[in-house]
Design a binder for these strands. Structure first.
Lengths: 154, 154
DNA sequence: TTTATTTTATTAGCTGGCTAACCAAATAAG
DNA sequence: CTTATTTGGTTAGCCAGCTAATAAAATAAA
């Protein structure tokens, strides 16, 4: 491990910039999703269900690297606004599967539009090469923090 | 603005990866700071005060791109554990200035050590070039989201 | 000078995250 | 078969963020 410099400047660490950027981005995402009546966390759950409908909460949590209670709350919110319904699994009385409703399916186009808009705004100052590199580097960081196997998503 | 592709894959957007990476990083930072009895948010306030002691809450909020109530709570927590004290400004009865206590000054070395350790862990899979590029790209994103003037930090 | 506006900070209440503790069901061990 | 462990989910309670609403002080405007 590299030695800690004598005069440590927090602002010049990637950790610092990543943290501040994260917060700022989160606000933007929340605002973006709010325009279509969603919270950011709910959008992530929907994205997961659009990919594989009927997942159990623990599966969603695993995919998004979230804790079980976090997903539990998000799904509760989605059920309340009729975008998702839950259904007991017949052969396992512990788990419940989450399914998108018709309304939950219908909202996908709006989410995509908003998401794409935010993405463009995010990357406005970056050229194509920078975009590819940033995606790659962020993916590496994610793998580092979550200990996940790269390329395990399809 | 580029057209939204026919089949939109959320997972392949930088927004998606950034969001998931952010959450994972936040957890790591929180755990890291917890080893020295701090919360992540409190660390950021301390970092600001170490740089310029006696700042008003609104100054700190501005520097960190946080809302006033957020900083208010963080400082309250820091005061409770005797790392920060607040003092009324004599010529402006609205604002209070925050100062690090002796204990708040003394903890700096520990925070630096922990921070540096997390930074090394974060960047373990990245070479020097990638580190520089990542810092630069994240800074760009931060500027995009916060609308801040680049290079305004010293 | 009086009134209107802006500024600083706090409180209340929300979502996004977490851990700890708990329950019930499924499975493994004995 | 009975007990112990693991697993899926919820509840409670915490911090990191936010907005809206409020209060008080400072400033600008009339």
């Amino acid at each position: 491990m590299a030695p800690r410099p004598a005069e440590f400047v927090f602002e010049q660490t990637i950790s610092f910039v990543l943290a501040r950027t994260s917060t700022a981005f989160r606000n933007s995402l929340e605002k973006s999703m709010a325009t279509i009546g969603l919270h950011a966390g709910q959008a992530f759950v929907l994205i997961e269900l659009w990919k594989r409908n009927g997942q159990r909460q623990i599966d969603i949590a695993s995919q998004l690297n979230l804790a079980a209670p976090t997903v539990s709350k998000m799904i509760k919110g989605l059920v309340e606004i009729n975008l998702v319904r839950v259904q007991k699994v017949e052969d396992d009385a512990r788990s419940t599967r989450a399914f998108v409703t018709e309304k939950g399916l219908a909202i996908r186009a709006e989410v995509e539009t908003q998401w794409h808009e935010l993405e463009e705004y995010t990357l406005a100052d970056l050229n194509e090469t920078e975009r590819l590199i940033l995606f790659d580097l962020l993916s590496k960081l994610r793998n580092t923090y979550t200990g996940r196997d790269p390329e395990e998503d399809e």
